[in-house]
């Protein structure tokens, strides 16, 4: 691929990333809030709606994480920019949370699950939001 093509592709990628960050931040904020609501009902009510809501949130989280992974791939192509590291990928923190959440699900330990969501997952989503914010800022100024 010629340098010019690379440059054009890079610019297209950068534009796509910039355009998607706003939506991604919105999703992260929404998910964080929604998971926090989930925790409340999981600790106090445990009804059918709680679990339907939880299932929906986990589904949305999966899509969000896929997006974050793609974003990471895209950012990898823009290596000339020095970008802040993604908190979700540092020391596999997201992966560890999901593993623990899975085990809480298996034992139906809803207190443990609530703890993981409230004290690990929701803060991680908040950090993701912050990271996306700083990323956005960096790309706006340097990109």
């Amino acid at each position: 691929m010629s340098e010019l093509t690379k440059e054009i592709k890079g610019a297209e990628l950068l534009t796509a990333i910039k355009a998607s960050i706003g939506d991604a931040r919105f999703v992260a904020q929404q998910l964080s809030g929604s998971f926090k609501d989930n925790v409340r009902s999981l600790r106090l009510e445990e009804n059918e709606d709680t679990f339907l809501h939880l299932e929906q949130n986990i589904n949305d989280l999966r899509h969000f994480m896929e997006f974050v992974k793609e974003l990471g791939n895209g950012l990898g192509c823009l290596n000339e920019l020095s970008l802040p590291p993604n908190p979700a990928s540092s020391q596999n923190s997201a992966l560890n949370i999901f593993k623990d959440m899975n085990s809480a699900f298996e034992t139906k330990d809803w207190i443990m699950l609530s703890d993981l969501i409230e004290y690990e997952l929701a803060p991680l989503l908040d950090k993701e939001d912050e990271w996306l914010g700083s990323l956005d800022e960096k790309l706006q100024t340097e990109g």
């Binding site: 409340r40 139906k108 409230e118």
Partner: peptide, 21 residues
């Protein structure tokens, strides 16, 4: 029976939330 009866992070806050609810 391997199930948590109270929060393993902050059981006091959990109890406060319970009362508030």
């Amino acid at each position: 029976d391997s199930i948590a009866l109270h929060s393993l992070y902050d059981p006091v806050k959990e109890a406060e939330d319970w009362v508030k609810h």
